[in-house]
């Protein structure tokens, strides 16, 4: 994480997932859409919920809870944040979108090397504003194709 330290500050879209507040770099967010029917894609890893129709384009939807190894119990699934990394658009299902906040470098701390419940390798750091703690996601890493491919390969050879 140390490599990202210098440029961590900026605007973040925050959302709730299983009671925790997370932040996503606003530059990576292309839009927020309401929840919609997701077509399950068989034989894919559990953190892939399926695909949706985004104005004629088929885009995959990721289940963050599964990605973070959290149970699906209590999921509200109110909306999908569509993130764009490179040319690839991917949807991320969240419980509730909160706000857009500016978080300065000074307000961001490194994530603890061990966390409770979330894999810290997916975090840019931890932002503290208005007395609240926000887990800032390293979305590139969360969506990292390598891992998806590896998981897909694992699933298909299972």
């Amino acid at each position: 994480m140390s490599t990202a330290t210098a440029t961590r500050g900026g605007k973040f879209l925050t959302f709730f997932l299983a009671g925790e507040e997370y932040g996503l770099e606003i530059l990576k967010v292309s839009e927020i859409i309401g929840m919609q029917p997701i077509t399950r894609v068989p034989r894919t890893p559990s953190h892939i919920r399926g695909v949706i129709n985004l104005r004629g384009k088929v885009i995959p939807i990721m289940e963050l809870r599964a990605r973070f190894g959290m149970p699906r119990d209590g999921a509200e699934d109110t909306c999908i944040i569509v993130v764009q990394v490179g040319a690839v658009q991917t949807g991320v299902v969240v419980d509730k979108v909160s706000e857009v906040v500016s978080i300065g470098d000074a307000e961001i701390e490194d994530a603890p090397t061990f966390g409770d419940g979330i894999h810290t390798e997916y975090l840019l750091g931890i932002g503290k504003t208005n007395g609240r703690v926000k887990l800032l996601l390293d979305i590139d890493r969360v969506l990292s194709g390598d891992e998806v491919a590896a998981a897909a390969a694992a699933a298909s050879t299972a």
Partner: peptide, 27 residues
């Protein structure tokens, strides 16, 4: 017919997706 996207890669048994009449994706 549309690709499911490179992010998903090759999905065994599925060649792609398509938007069905109700707006949902069919595989």
């Amino acid at each position: 017919a549309k690709s499911l996207g490179e992010w998903l890669g090759t999905v065994r048994g599925i060649s792609g997706g398509a938007i069905l009449g109700d707006g949902r994706v069919g595989l």
